[in-house]
Design a protein around this nucleic acid. Sequence first.
RNA 1: GGCGCGUUGGCCGAGGAGUUAGGCAAAGGUCUGCAAAACCUUUUACACGGGUGCGAAUCCCGUACGCGCCUCCA
Length: 473
Amino acid sequence: MKLYNTLGRQIQQFQPLKEGEVSLYTCGPTVYDYAHIGNWRSFVFDDTLRRVLESEGYKVKHVMNITDVGHLTSDADEGRDKLEAGAESRGSSVWDVAEHFIEIFIKDSEKLNILPPNGYKENRSAYARATDFIDEQIGIVKILLDKGFAYKTDEAIYFEVSKLDSYGKLSGQKLEDKEVGAREDVVTDANKRHPQDFALWFFTVGRFAGHEMKWHSPWGTGFPGWHLECSAIIHATLGDPIDIHTGGVDHIGTHHANEMAQTEAAFGNKLANFWVHNEHMLVDGKKMSKSLGNYITLEEVLKRGYAPADLRLLYLQAHYRSQMNFSWEALTAASVRLKGYRAFADLRFQPGGESALKNEAYIKIQDEINQALADDISTPKALSLLDALAEQAQDKGSEREPLVGFLKFIDNALGLELLASEDINTQQKRLIHQREQARAIKDWKESDALREALNKQGLDINDTSRGPVWSRG
RNA sequence: GGCGCGUUGGCCGAGGAGUUAGGCAAAGGUCUGCAAAACCUUUUACACGGGUGCGAAUCCCGUACGCGCCUCCA
């Protein structure tokens, strides 16, 4: 299997640290608001990566965090904790806000058929919350202070980036260059030794005096900085180094750079061997983001009558490393395409013709799809292979068992849930049978009436040389 | 200013030196008793200017435009 590694900027042969096992970590959501479909593109990609790894035979241990504290709205002095800001605007406590949006996030994940993480806990609360790892985070701060990588001011404890030679290796950008280009309107803490130094721990003083979420630490009451949770959770759950760390491209320069720095400085370990980043979803050529207000939520997609799987297919049509432009037209196209796949899947309930597709055809395509997916998760290629096969099957019919096996493979790898549909009921089967009898005696009036009745139940009938084939309208 | 990515037919999008992506939409057609279904066909698209090749959408250089990161962000 080959994957593009941001660390090194090239496609590399994937080799896990432990034979047959993969540790995978994903930066999860900050639960202060609804996730938008750009966020979901990223999480669906993580899920697809995991599914492909599993289909390659690896046992995958997947951990995803949930940021429920410490994520500031900016690094500027007026930056506030997102959770705190969200709670204030909703008039409820931060804990309630977090709980509320965690619940929504999990529900939406289920709708999109995203497998829950399995590397921390094996249940619905399998997501690793930052607030459940406060001690671990404090532990890292302690090590970093002891080793001289961190320093304390009145407001916070900072990581001193200039103490770590490898800082910034992920983005390939030199520290000096960043400094020169720093924007003027970003106010930095006067006590920081370097503008790029980032907070490990904030004290509940000054602008954070009223912070609701706070914990005791050896240095004073406060709360952790955002980047720290990932290092702590990985260390506590999967153990560093891990095989693969994923996230959006926007994290390359700061969040991931800081995670790496913390782990390397504290534990002397690499954080991850592979860094896999997905590109953004755009709207009218611009990045979908909350600050621009051009974002679309899953809720809106569903409200407009699309299924979660339509969205999932839309994501899979583009390669994860290319920006993708969202439009309702494109989503409709995906929806129609998926309908074609469903019709293909429904062939398993129907008799195949004499030239019905046999096992060999499926084995061959399955092999090719596996190759496409193993080649840096080329889902678009995999889908076009699926199209070709579906068309053949539509034309010739299919033997049942090989089709079911193939659909199971597709569902496992792509999460499209093609096996979720059920057979039509006996009454509907009877209507189809009656229509055939009417057609045999050329009673077109009766046969058209029966077809009409079936249409009303959402079934299309296609009269083929091998008999009537139904599909869902 | 620095770092990185991109520009493909009406739309979405693969591919990436010689041969076809695919999906959606539109038009025509085939099958059919009919058909909304299915299937087939549809003027061969790769920003622009150079360069290197027998040959470039594909490699190199430049230009234009767009996007992302360097501030929170999937």
